[in-house]
Write a protein that binds this DNA or RNA. Structure first.
Lengths: 208, 208
DNA sequence: ATTATATCGTGAAATTAAGAACGATTGTTC
DNA sequence: GAACAATCGTTCTTAATTTCACGATATAAT
């Protein structure tokens, strides 16, 4: 257990998978789980799981495994601390509406707090507890709702525009669902999710 | 330009980004593009782009760059050959409905060809040109529609069940939108897309 | 023609991620 | 309480990916 190392984003991604799995096990009244069991449930290897967990400074007990409640608390503390993630959505079309309804974005730890759209007919409406605002009010609304991450769900022609608004409002993270790359200043992280690309690359893999 | 090397799935993923970018440029009547320009547009580095392109056996001309039409054709040939990807959807709830409407899945190269749901009220309906079938007909319908990849958009409790059906029908690729890991036999590739995890891991990154 | 310059292609180095091996620890059994 | 089995934590290896460095080539300018 060396000195505090930087934890890679891959490890953090897997930590969230462990957390998801542990939640399920806790619901089924499990008390302990071993790296081997987690490996079977997640499709990862036991070594990798042990390595990840040890990087979070959490120790299990040989022959028994990890105490689920403790491990869960450790991971939660590490990846979320006591923060809540606030999301703001740009574009309430087909995809945007689905995002508004997605139950994962209305949890205690992650909340969708505001939506923006250009169309006058949508502005002012409240969907699933989230109000739709005009694009003109972005900085003010983002500040008031403590937004953390912006979601781009506008047509690809407006994607850069939305990204600029997000940057202007001071947000440091963007998830971009539009099928177009956007450019942002250093210090802002963009995660692209282009379904077409995800599917095609899987297809290429499979076709081997 | 060594002997034919295996092309990694990372490279293929980026090739699809290049393709998307080239399409945009072609629409704007560009004829040539350099690796540096592509780098600025995609956020990748010029070296990586050149290396990727050279792995597809495509050569550019110094001082000029790549001829867009040629590069586009090369990439298309390589990643898609003349195939069309056929997707079949499991679960027509909120997310499933959004997927049915997503325009990216009704292109010449990628088509959503069938959907399945348990609810009798949905079976038989046609949404966006796609018929919704009963879960009992999976193998037959998948075979008839030449399905390639299965999409899991059912509640997490039924995710494994859907995965089993997909495997049974002989498909080799799964995109899993349910927030639960599924286990499949060797030879079947699963790509998990858990929005909650994507957002949280971005948040962890940003908070550094 | 010669020089200058932008761009390409690629082998080598560096970085990062994953996997294998193995001693150490804890609970169990007789 | 001694031997065994299951599981952990960690170091060392191996593999994959990215970045660096630099020579080669095509166009443009003088």
């Amino acid at each position: 257990m060396g000195p505090m190392k930087k934890i890679s984003s891959k490890t953090i991604g897997r930590a969230l998978i462990y957390l998801r799995t542990l939640d399920g096990l806790a619901k089924q009244r499990w008390r302990y789980v071993s790296s081997g069991q987690l490996a079977r449930m997640t499709g990862l290897t036991d070594v990798q799981i042990r390595k990840d967990i040890s990087s979070f400074r959490k120790v299990g007990t040989p022959k028994v495994g990890y105490k689920i409640a403790d491990l869960k608390r450790t991971l939660e503390d590490f990846v979320l601390q006591e923060n809540v993630v606030h999301l703001v959505l740009f574009g309430v079309g087909n995809l945007g509406s689905a995002i508004l309804k997605y139950p994962g974005f209305h949890q205690p730890k992650m909340k969708l707090v505001a939506a923006f759209d250009q169309s006058a007919s949508k502005i002012g409406k409240v969907v699933n507890g989230v109000r739709i605002y005009s694009m003109e009010n972005v900085p003010h609304v983002v500040h008031r709702t403590h937004g953390d991450i912006g979601i781009i769900a506008v047509p690809k022609e407006s994607a850069q525009e939305a990204a600029d608004l997000i940057v202007l409002a001071g947000l440091k993270g963007i998830v971009n669902f539009a099928p177009a790359s956007v450019t942002v200043p250093k210090g802002v992280r963009v995660k692209d999710i282009d379904f077409t690309i995800e599917f095609l690359s899987l297809f290429c893999d499979v076709r081997t």
